[in-house]
């Protein structure tokens, strides 16, 4: 059906093309001109960053005098990268960031989807109140609660008997596992799955948890991917909370690692090398799973 419509549109377009061929090619050229200009605008900072990270500091500033050379690595050195490793525990930062994202996202997928399942597919007293409470909490921006949250976690006990969560990895994980917006996305997806599936399973004597585990979860892969990607993007970039909740290098993520590196001593070649090492892995992941990234973002808007 869609293919036929596309074909017809193509045919119509072709007919039109023969009518106003020159006007059409002018618009086409204009479209491409705008698209290429925009592409340059969106790419130049990242390309400049990566190219410069391979240049000696002095050459970066020399090449800036001629715009074109700023984008050409006429001399390649890896010294900036080794300097970064010498000056800061880059591996530690990378591990922290990755661990925080993976732990938070995977725990979040479990607990947020479970509560959404209970709300969307089980009958129980208190459901309406819980649902409206969650929707209310979803408008609370994280920034509006960071200051009091810091005071609270500073007084929370931890399993080893110590008091205060500051300067740890778990202070960057546990508070962000439960997420009202993720619950909302799961809820909207689960509510659309036909009831017949679970009814049949219940007749066979399955428990609600078994229905969640064996029927709903396997049917809901797209929404799990959406929530995982959106949460991972948000957590990977998070800056304000780790800035407040961590002091030492041991628990810091990359974002705070690079800004404190930048604050210590401005050596641009090294800073750009650091920035490239943070950015390139994510860009590669993005290129590999592009379809999923784009679908996740699109999903936030569809039912909003």
């Amino acid at each position: 059906m869609a293919a036929r419509i596309a074909e017809e549109a193509e045919l119509k377009a072709r007919r039109k093309r023969s009518r106003g061929n020159s006007r059409r090619s002018v618009t086409l050229a204009l479209d491409y001109a705008i698209m290429i200009a925009l592409a340059v605008f969106f790419l130049f900072p990242i390309v400049f960053m990566v190219v410069s990270s391979f240049k000696p500091e002095k050459l970066i500033f020399d090449d800036l005098k001629t715009i074109v050379w700023a984008f050409i690595p006429r001399e390649v050195t890896f010294e900036n990268f080794t300097s970064v490793f010498r000056r800061v525990p880059f591996g530690r930062f990378m591990f922290n960031s990755t661990f925080i994202v993976l732990a938070t996202v995977s725990a979040g997928l479990v607990i947020n989807s479970m509560v959404a399942f209970a709300l969307a597919r089980l009958r129980w007293k208190g459901k309406i109140i819980v649902l409206s409470l969650i929707i209310t909490l979803s408008i609370v921006p994280l920034d509006a609660i960071v200051v009091p949250l810091l005071v609270l976690v500073n007084e929370f006990p931890w399993i080893d008997g110590s008091i205060g969560w500051l300067d740890t990895l778990h202070v960057q994980i546990i508070p962000f596992i439960a997420d009202a917006f993720s619950i909302f996305l799961f809820y909207q997806f689960f509510i659309g799955i036909p009831r017949d599936f679970d009814e049949a399973a219940y007749i066979d004597g399955a428990s609600p948890f078994a229905v969640y585990r064996r029927i709903i979860v396997p049917l809901s892969r797209p929404v799990f991917a959406t929530v995982a990607i959106l949460q991972a993007l948000f957590l990977w970039s998070s800056y304000l909370w780790p800035l407040m909740a961590t002091r030492g290098e041991d628990s810091r993520p990359l974002t705070v690692g690079i800004t404190s590196f930048y604050g210590q001593d401005v050596k641009w070649a090294q800073i750009l090398a650091f920035a490239s090492m943070i950015t390139i892995p994510v860009l590669i992941l993005f290129l590999l799973f592009q379809k999923w990234f784009v679908q996740s973002v699109a999903a936030t808007g569809l039912k909003g």
Partner: peptide, 9 residues
Amino acid sequence: SPVVTSMAV
């Protein structure tokens, strides 16, 4: 592509 890059960076 800028969307997937951290703002701090």
